[in-house]
Amino acid sequence: MNKYVEFKGTSNGLVLSIKPFESFEQILEGVKEKLDASAQFFQGAKIIGVEGFLGEEKQRVALYHLLTDEYNLEVLSLDPLMRMTKSEEVPSEVIEEEEEITEIDYKHVDYNEFDTKIVRHTLRSGMGVAYDGNIVVIGDVNPGAELSAGGNIIVMGKLRGMVHAGKFGNKNAYVIASKMLPTQIRITNVIARAPEGENIDELKPEIAHLKSGKMSIEEL
């Protein structure tokens, strides 16, 4: 069996599939072999294109004559099928799509249903996470570490560092921590500090959010 040539049936007609070959003779032989083997099946068949690399124009003509003159097949085209669609139609669509994606109105996104980044380790001094969506930290946020999120920030541990929620101006953003002792807490452009001198040992989950434009920290 010749391994270079294959005929594939589609709803519109047959497609000649060509594997990489060494000499064009192999292709012609392969075609002959296939067509001779089941001459009846190919009676009046229609070739609509070629899949794979065919080589020079001269070879394409030779193949055309073989198919039409010797086997009486109807040949609509011997142009490469895949390449045509790829090179001519696709690019214009892609460019249009890219233009559509650019604008997300981060200010008015419902962050409760938005992308979330989960950080599964303690953030030490000098480490930071900035993300357009929400941030969840499973671990502590130490002094000197910084978090900034377009949406909400949830710390499942002790929050001692700097956090900024709603950095694009989302006033509904909130910060939740198992123990709320931040160096500084920011929601949109409102900045607050943790109350001084208060240091309780047990974990007490609290939420910080804006109430009529002012920072409010309450028990969860």
């Binding site: 030490r124 001094s125 000098g126 480490m127 130490n142 002094p143 000197g144």
Partner: peptide, 12 residues
């Protein structure tokens, strides 16, 4: 302690 915390992060 703050600097030690930073160093531990860098070591990790």
């Amino acid at each position: 302690v703050r600097d030690a915390d930073r160093i531990i992060g860098l070591l990790e």
